[in-house]
Design a protein around this nucleic acid. Sequence first.
DNA 1: AAGCTTTGCAACCGCTATAGT
DNA 2: AACTATAGCGGTTGCAAAGCT
Length: 315
Amino acid sequence: MKKGPWTPEEDQKLISFIQQYGHGSWRLRRCGKSCRLRWTNYLRPDIKRGKFSLQEEQTIIQLHALLGNRWSAIAAHLPKRTDNEIKNYWNTHLKKRLTRLGIDPTTHKPKNDAVNGNSPHAANLSHMAQWESARLEAEARLAKESKLQPGFTQAQPLPLMTRLVLNKITPQPSLPPCLDVLKAWQNSWSSSSSSSSKPAKMHSMYAMMLATDDLESPTSTLSFPNSSNSNTISISQVPLPNSTITATAAASGSGADDDIEPYIMAAAEALRSGGRSYDDDDKFEGLIENSEEEEKHYWNTLLNWANDLPSPGLP
DNA sequence: AAGCTTTGCAACCGCTATAGT
DNA sequence: AACTATAGCGGTTGCAAAGCT
């Protein structure tokens, strides 16, 4: 059985074969597995090749923070990108970039004490830590929902948050579901000294997740059986994690969910539209290439958009 | 220009899950 | 129930191209 790189002739042969017989049968002189992979990762007509956009990069990083190395799950939220391509891009580009910024690409947490405010990048790293908190909260909340709602049904394909967590995060066998992430979440809140700013930062990180293009897709709807008016709600209406709401209430004396959402959406909107066009790849290519300073600027700008918004719990 | 090193990515490998017999 | 084939996944490897000395 032949191995190694595919020749153009073989590609053509494979394409012709698929055009004639579909992609259910992988019988050429190559092994079936190799043919299938070549098709799914390279020849398929609906594959987008070439440089990743800023939006795609953000999405990958955010999803990696949520899912870890679950490349197929990540790829499901990046239209026309394959898991293999995303995996390669992470390993060769994004991982290095995060490392250079002092972020552990595995845990998405700062690598040193810079969070305490002594380093020039303290704010940046602090944001990343908050991001991680949001991640843990999302995991906990959605996993909890999946547990509490056995009759959970979906009217449409589940979007980002739900699919990521409900379908992909496996409960730890030795612990009750969610206990570990809830504990981590609790620690992340209790260990910080500035309680009054927590809700705003939390909302900002949540908003960053909401701001991804993927969440704006037509399929970005959630459905819950006990939703009041309709069992399908838009992603912009996804409620904040309960503990976030509680923390906000504790800080502000108000517990209404309605107080929170405008700030989330404002932050999301600011990220989407403010200052730069994420669709214009050429415009910003230079920003994210080569220069460490430019990279820091890129990240700081992005993250500060979220942090500069007012605290919902404060006057 | 030549040789060496690094980078990027397609392809492979090994494993698990699932479907069919 | 046991076996086989296939699909899917994530980690790793190998090699061509680019970069560097």
